[in-house]
Structure formats: C-alpha cells, structure tokens
Amino acid sequence: MAKKLKWNDLGTGGRILVVLTAGLQFGLLGAAWTDLARRRESEVNGPRWAWALAALVNVVGPIAYFARGRRH
C-alpha cells in the first residue's frame, strides 16, 4: 500500500500544483452554481438540483454542466 503524502512531504512544485488545482475546482464550482442560479428553469437541461450536485464532482461536474446542462 502506498504511503499517504502529507503537506510537509510535498516539495514546492507539488504544493503549487495542489493549490492551483483546488483554485480551479472552486472557481469552476462557483461559476457553475452562479450561472445555474441566474438561469430560468427553461434554460437548464434537467433539474437544477441535479446539476448543482453534479457540479460537486471534482472538475468534471462543472465542465459537464457548461457543456450539457445549459440550453442556448
């Protein structure tokens, strides 16, 4: 079994990667939820609550919402 890495075990590059990835995740999540809240029900493919939950799935959820969840 692989040893779990702790924050102190990471080098500078690893720490920067973790912070950038977390920033990307939270940025996309915030953008997806904001867009979802501002759209009318008729402009969303499927139920809003489902897209709000799907957006919580790492980076994939918000990207899926922007790709498939909105009607243009």
Rank of each mutant, 00 (worst) to 15 (best):
A54G: 14
G30K: 05
G14C: 08
S42A: 12
T21L: 14
A37M: 04
L29E: 07
L20N: 07
N58Y: 05
F26Q: 06
L20H: 04
A50F: 11
G11M: 07
L5F: 12
F26E: 10
V44M: 08
M1L: 13
N58R: 12
V18M: 15
N8H: 12
E43S: 14
R70C: 04
T21P: 00
A2G: 03
G46W: 02
G13R: 05
L28W: 02
P62V: 00
A50G: 04
W49A: 10
K3M: 15
R40G: 13
Q25I: 12
L24C: 05
G69P: 01
W51Q: 06
V59T: 15
L24K: 08
L36M: 03
G61A: 06
H72G: 15
A64T: 02
A37T: 11
A2L: 15
L36Y: 00
V18I: 12
A37Q: 14
F66W: 03
L5D: 02
R68A: 13
W7Q: 05
T12P: 04
N58V: 13
A64Y: 14
L53G: 03
R38L: 14
F26G: 13
G13A: 12
F26V: 12
N8Y: 05
W51L: 09
N58A: 13
N45E: 12
T34V: 12
E43V: 07
R38A: 12
L36D: 08
P62G: 02
V44H: 06
G69Q: 00
A67M: 15
L10E: 10
R15G: 06
W7I: 08
V57C: 07
R38F: 13
F66S: 00
P62N: 01
A67G: 04
L10G: 08
T12W: 13
V44P: 02
L28N: 08
G30F: 10
L10H: 06
W49C: 03
A52H: 02
A54P: 01
